[in-house]
Design a protein around this nucleic acid. Structure first.
Length: 465
RNA sequence: GGCGGGUUGGCGGAGAGGUUACGCAGCGGAUUGCAAAUCCGUGAAGACCGGUUCGAUUCCGGUACCCGCCUCCA
């Protein structure tokens, strides 16, 4: 069996992956807060962990991996959007408008991630479906002295968990020294974070022992991971920006609530996506969504391939040039793979590259080797392992089916005449018109061949008739 | 201020203490009426300064610059 090695943020080392139960490998990844379209940065972890999911399915069997990715549908930004709609005259209660907004966003998200070739996780839980578990977990933490209720809030007592800060490599004292956060007066300690907070009049809320309120962000993931994967599971993933405080807090809550479990064994963090060397953000104006790119005609597979070109633990710059290059490369691979026999498994070089801490850049190198060697069956199977061709070769990568025999005959005729007369102007005129229509013109001693290219435009060809 | 990551040829981007990464672009050639496509070949690198070593781009230390987290951002 292939040995998978992963860089574990918990130990800061590349370690051999040993699942708790090879017949049920369990992975949790932090999903989006569903207040708007997913931006391109949101897509990176989706592709990274989809690749890992596919590798795990390949190694342990498709039925022996459980992948959970949540939707955070309790959030101020969601409430704000629902409120805006209500004020703009939308009908329905605020709760209904919130639900409408989150379901709409979830549908967008699923559609956009489908376009990237990401498999749906086995579970996509919504936070609002697990409020009961969150309340129960919070009660347990209070009972065991790890949390306290005050003024409608419940706060986690950070000093009660001695390992707090281990994941992110920070000490509580250092953090307080550098803190720039305003500290709520009711906190016992500035580092304490909220497990439950009260909801004011128009905000959505649930009844709880501490009054009407809603869960804190961190407890959501802890509760859902516990409910769906148990006290101990294998892999917890997410973007590097979530390492602190989100993941640190998740560990603290879960470790204290379930002292017999050890939560996630391997923590994986993907580096950030950048645009022009800077993190994507609305304030910098370098913000765009996956849908924006798809609408511009950049296929989802191309976006996926661009992500795969860079190792997941390196920052990655999105550029138009990369997309162009990725599309050309993918087209070449697809062309070779489309005619290949489907009778082998993925190339061991590709599997090994992925098994080595998800070295997708190395895997791409291996694909080039296969293409150069003409090993199309392995190329095909390897592309599939990497999440391409789930639905065959996409339309954009296929040569359009058009009958060009008329044009071909005409060109041959003109060329033969020109060969005799040495006047090539008529041939060249037809040739440039064909090229302008996106047709590749291949002339040799043997004859003339016309192949519709990527930019083939039937309308321009029509004009030639 | 605290913590973490990075700096590889024109661009993208890996591995490895000594052996061509690779892709794109470029250049040369074959081919072509000219092109395109294809094929063959090819130059070019590892921020800076020290150290360890027979040998470092790869290990160690320092400097510079870049990026991120410390704000319910993937």
């Amino acid at each position: 069996m292939v040995t998978i090695r992963l860089t574990n943020s918990k130990t800061r080392r590349k370690e051999e992956f040993r699942p708790i139960d090879p017949s049920d490998v369990r992975m949790y990844v932090c999903g989006p807060t569903v207040y708007d379209r997913a931006h391109l940065g949101n897509a990176r972890p989706v592709v990274v962990f989809d690749t890992l999911y596919r590798l795990l399915r390949h190694v342990y069997g498709p039925d022996h991996v459980t992948y959970v990715r949540n939707f955070t549908d309790v959030d101020d930004k969601i409430n704000a959007e629902a409120l805006r709609r209500q004020k703009a005259g939308a009908s329905g209660t605020l709760e209904e408008l919130i639900h409408q907004r989150t379901e709409e966003t979830i549908a967008w998200y699923d559609a956009d991630m489908d376009a990237l070739g990401a498999l749906r996780p086995n579970h996509e839980p919504r936070a609002t479906e697990f409020i009961g578990q969150m309340i129960a977990m919070t009660e347990g933490l209070i009972a065991s002295g790890h949390a306290y209720a005050v003024e409608g809030h419940v706060l986690f007592r950070v000093r009660s968990y001695k390992d707090y800060g281990n994941l992110s490599g920070r000490s509580v004292d250092d953090m307080i020294a550098g803190a720039r956060v305003e500290v709520a007066p009711f906190k016992e300690d500035p580092m304490d974070f909220v497990l439950w907070k009260p909801s004011s009049g128009e905000e959505p809320g649930w009844e709880s022992p501490w009054g009407k309120g809603r869960p804190g962000w961190h407890i959501e993931c802890s509760a859902m991971a516990h409910e769906l994967l148990g006290e101990s599971f294998d892999i917890h993933g997410g973007g590097l920006d979530l390492q602190f405080p989100h993941h640190e807090n998740e560990i603290a809550q879960s470790a204290c609530a379930h002292p017999h479990g050890d939560f996630a064994h391997y923590w994986l963090h993907n580096e950030m996506l950048q645009v022009e060397g800077k993190k994507m953000s609305k304030s910098l104006g370098n913000f765009f969504t996956v849908r924006d790119l798809l609408d511009q005609g950049i296929p989802g597979e191309v976006i996926r391939f661009v992500f795969l070109m860079t190792h997941y633990r390196s920052p990655m710059d999105w550029t138009a040039e990369k997309a162009r290059q990725a599309q050309a490369t993918l087209r070449k691979f697809y062309l070779l793979a489309s005619e290949a026999l489907d009778n082998v498994g993925p190339y061991i070089g590709v599997t090994n590259a992925l098994a080595d801490d998800l070295n997708t850049a190395q895997a791409v190198y291996e694909l080039h080797q296969l293409a150069n060697a003409g090993d199309t069956p392995n190329l095909r199977a390897s592309l599939r392992l990497l999440g391409f061709m789930d639905n065959g070769v996409p339309e954009w990568a296929r040569s359009p089916v058009v009958d060009l025999t008329g044009q071909t005959e005409r060109l041959i005729e003109l060329r033969n005449a020109a060969m005799a007369s040495k006047d090539f102007s008529a041939v060249d005129a037809l040739k440039s018109a064909l090229i302008a229509a996106g047709v590749e013109v291949r002339m040799s001693k043997a004859g003339v061949e016309l192949v519709p290219g990527p930019d083939f435009d039937p309308a321009k060809l029509e004009a030639l008739q």
